[in-house]
Simulated assay, not measured.
Amino acid sequence: MEEERQWHLKSLHALEAHALSQGEGVVVAVPDSGVSPHPDLAGSLVPGTDIIPGGSGNGLSDTDGHGTGMAGLIAAHAKNSSIGALGIAPRAKILPIYSSPAHRDGTSEALAEGIDYAVSRHAQVISVSATGAPDAHLQRAVKAAIQANVTIVAAAGNIGTSSLVGYPASEPGVIAVGGVDRNGNHAAISVSGPEIDVVAPAVNIYSTGLNGGYRVGTGTSDATAIVAGAAALIRSKYPSLPAAEVAHRLTATAVDKGPPGRDDQYGYGVIDLVAALTADVPPLGFESTGVTAPAPTAAAPDARGDNGTARGLATLGALLAAGGAYLVWRRRRRADDPPPRISR
C-alpha cells in the first residue's frame, strides 16, 4: 500500500483506526454494477444477486468497474502490496448486488429491489453510491431498511447530474454524504444542501478496478463507500448499537468545517474514524436538552432514612450537566482541534 496514492487513508488516520476495529463480523451490501473478484478482495466477497439480467447470477461480475471500486474502498485488504488497495473496513464482508448495468443507468425499481435483498440477507450496512427517483417502491424499501436497523449510507450526488441532494440521501434516517478534496475543502463536484450529514474524501480516490487492476475515481460515490466503511468499523466494535446511534456517532465526532456548526457544504464535518471509535458520545436525544445544570443540593433523607431522592437528584444533575458539556464540546470541535480521546 502506497500512502501517497491512497491519500485518503492517511488523511483519515485509517491505520490507527484499524488498531481499534477492522469491520469484522459486518456485512456491507453494495447495490451497484456488481463486484468483480479481485486479489485485494479475496475472502471479502460473499455471493449476492443480480437484480437485472446479464450478470453472473450472484453479483460477482462487473463490466463497468464502479461497484468493484466501491467494494475496495470499503473492504480491500492488500496491506503488504506496494500498489494494492486498502479499505476502511478490511475485515468486513461485501454483499454484491448487480442493480445497475453501468452504475448511473440503473433504475429506482432495481435499487429498491437491491435494498430489499440486502435487508433479507441481514446486511448491517448498505452503501448506495447512486441516486434515484424517489418513487413509492424505493421510498418503501429505504424506510423498511431503516426500520430493520440497517445503516444506509448514500451519496448526496455530483454537480452536473443535479444541484440538489439526491434520493435516498435526502431521506431522513439515511446518512447523506458529501465530498472534500485533498486539502479538506469542499469538493467542487459535490452537491450541497440541508440534508448533508457528513463529508469524506472524494477527489482522486484510488481503489480496486477490473481485471485485477486499479481505478482512480472522483465523486460523492467514493466518499459514500468510505463512510460506509466507517459505519462498518463502528458496527463491528459496538455490535449492539442501533443504526441511528451509528449515524449519531459519525456526526457527533466529525471535524467541523466551514461556518461553525452544521452547514450545507460539510454537514457536521469530515468523518473522524478514530474519534468515532473511541469518544464517549451521549446517546441521541440526550444532548438536545440544551440544559447545563449546577450540581443540585442534596435533599435531606425522608423519615425512613432513604437517600434515594438525594441520589436521584444528584444523578439527574450530573446527566444534565454532561449534556450541556457535550453541546459545548460538539460546537467547538473544529478542524484545528485534536480529536477527543475519551477511551471506553
Score class of each variant (00 low, 15 high):
E4M: 09
H8G: 00
L9H: 05
S11I: 00
H13L: 11
H13E: 05
A14V: 02
L20D: 09
V27L: 15
V27W: 04
A29D: 12
S44I: 10
S44F: 05
S44W: 05
V46F: 09
V46P: 01
V46E: 11
G48F: 09
D50K: 05
G57K: 08
S61L: 12
T63V: 05
G67D: 08
A71R: 09
A75F: 08
S81Y: 08
L86R: 07
R91W: 04
I97F: 06
Y98H: 14
S99N: 13
E109H: 11
L111Y: 08
Y117C: 01
A118S: 15
V119F: 07
S120T: 14
A123C: 11
V128F: 10
T131C: 09
G132Y: 00
P134Q: 10
A141N: 07
V142C: 11
I146V: 13
V153S: 06
N158L: 12
I159Q: 04
I159W: 00
G160T: 05
S163R: 12
Y167S: 08
Y167V: 07
S170E: 05
P172Y: 06
P172N: 12
G173S: 10
G173K: 02
V180R: 00
D181A: 02
N183T: 09
N185H: 14
A188G: 11
S192Q: 15
P194M: 12
D197I: 03
V198I: 11
V199N: 00
P201E: 02
A202M: 07
V203K: 04
I205R: 02
Y206R: 03
S207I: 07
T208A: 06
N211L: 08
Y214E: 13
R215M: 09
R215W: 02
V216Q: 02
G217Q: 14
S221A: 11
A225C: 10
I226F: 03
L233C: 11
K237D: 01
L250P: 03
T253C: 07
T253P: 00
A254V: 01
V255A: 07
D256M: 02
P260R: 15
P260K: 15
D263E: 14
V270R: 04
I271M: 06
L273G: 06
A275H: 00
A275R: 01
L277R: 02
V281L: 06
P282D: 08
L284T: 13
F286R: 13
S288E: 15
T289D: 11
P294E: 12
A295K: 14
A295R: 14
T297W: 02
A298M: 11
R304E: 07
G308W: 06
A310N: 09
R311W: 09
R311H: 12
G312S: 15
L313A: 13
L313Y: 09
L313D: 04
L313H: 05
A314F: 10
L316C: 05
G317Q: 08
L319C: 07
L319Y: 05
L319T: 10
L319D: 04
G323D: 11
A325P: 00
R330P: 09
R331W: 06
R331N: 14
R334C: 04
A335K: 14
D336N: 15
P338Y: 04
P340R: 12
R341E: 06
S343G: 07
